[in-house]
């Protein structure tokens, strides 16, 4: 027995260090990639780091990052929500129409409540279908993507929302800030910190990881699997609703389905940020960093006068790189951990 005890400890300790390093490594390497990108771009064109340039990047990242936070929660439970882009569009347009009908009486708060409620309803629908009807998440959210998109176009009917019809306070929310810091990134950071803290520090937050890591074991451990999955979708939908209102506030002028195709960018951001597509692993901080990286690449391409058409291709390539690296690392780490826990040649 003593022999067993003696050689187990060092193996265990270093294994833990190793794994933590790997997980931290994702966030660190994202920061490093960002730093390199910013340095190179600034070296070529110093305007990149001007006050306005930085502010634009943060403004542009905010909504994407918000969606990435919601999507992370869903992906961590081994599911996916492809309908977020269409929800943003629906909410942006409907909220715009709603407040512009009475710009003096309906203010920022009303708009936020209205938009988040629509988003939450969409999320609830997805969640019910996935968790209680056990329909594959990909298919269901593809379907709701279609439906919501059609609904959006139907409601819009070729019209568009104009900034002049909106309450000034709403536009102020989207473009101004306090002490030079715009509101949008502040909102995103607050949401990110709250969700990140919840996921790490509360038992119900850990349930999400448990479900994604092993649904079977989660059920055996008495985790309320369906309720948590439903909650993840509800939350993702509500955040998409919030994102829709902020979209309206930022751009003012909105046509139908403005965030078309965003679902894939959001999923890319989440996966690039280190949330495993098979669930159970990842943090919202990583997902937000992923969103920041994707946005910064877009801005850098403009500044570097690279054909901006490369952006989408790069997003795809980055996603492929991220899942490949994840896979290779996972295989390596598992092998290493297994070697360390093998004792006495078993």
């Amino acid at each position: 027995m003593t022999a067993v005890t003696a050689d187990a400890t060092p193996g265990g300790r270093s294994a833990r260090g190793l794994v933590e390093l790997v997980f931290r490594a994702r966030e660190l390497s994202l920061v490093a990639a960002l730093a390199v990108l910013v340095l190179v771009t600034t070296a070529v064109n110093p305007n990149f780091l001007s006050g306005q340039g930085v502010k634009d990047i943060f403004l542009n990242t905010s909504i994407l990052a918000l969606l990435a936070v919601g999507q992370s929660l869903v992906v961590i439970t081994r599911n996916i929500d492809l309908s977020v882009g269409s929800v943003v569009g629906l909410v942006a347009f409907c909220t715009g129409k709603f407040v512009s009908a009475d710009p003096t009486g309906r203010g920022v708060l009303t708009a936020l409540v209205f938009g988040v409620a629509i988003g939450a309803v969409c999320g609830l629908l997805n969640g019910l279908l996935v968790s209680f009807c056990r329909v594959p998440a990909l298919v269901v959210t593809l379907g709701t993507l279609y439906v919501i998109q059609g609904l959006d176009h139907y409601i819009a009917h070729g019209q568009q929302i104009n900034a002049v019809d909106l309450p000034p306070a709403l536009l102020h929310l989207g473009n101004e800030g306090v002490l030079g810091v715009p509101y949008l990134p502040v909102i995103t950071v607050v949401v990110m910190l709250a969700v990140g803290y919840y996921l790490r520090s509360y038992p119900s937050g850990r349930d999400f990881y448990a479900i994604g890591s092993s649904p079977e074991a989660a059920r055996l451990a008495g985790v309320p699997v369906r309720r948590r999955v439903l909650a993840a979708y509800l939350f993702s939908g509500a955040l998409a609703g919030l994102g829709g209102v902020l979209w309206l506030a930022r751009f003012g002028t909105v046509v139908a389905d403005p965030a078309r195709g965003w679902e894939l960018i959001v999923v890319s951001a989440v996966v690039v940020g280190g949330v495993a597509i098979v669930g159970g692993v990842g943090t919202v901080y990583g997902a937000v960093l992923g969103a920041l990286l994707l946005t910064t690449i877009g801005s850098a391409l403009v500044v570097l006068k690279v054909n901006s058409f490369w952006q989408q291709a790069l997003t795809g390539a980055l996603l492929l790189l991220a899942i490949t690296v994840d896979r290779v690392l996972a295989v390596r780490v598992t092998r290493l951990l297994r070697k360390r826990s093998v004792r006495h040649g078993a």
Binding site: V4, T5, A8, T9, G12, R13, A15, R16, V19, V333, T334, L336, L337, R338, R340, S341, V342, R343, A346
Partner: peptide, 12 residues
């Protein structure tokens, strides 16, 4: 002696 902090992945 099993380190409570290590992930379960890779345990014998």
């Amino acid at each position: 002696a099993i380190d409570p902090g290590r992930p379960a992945r890779g345990l014998s």
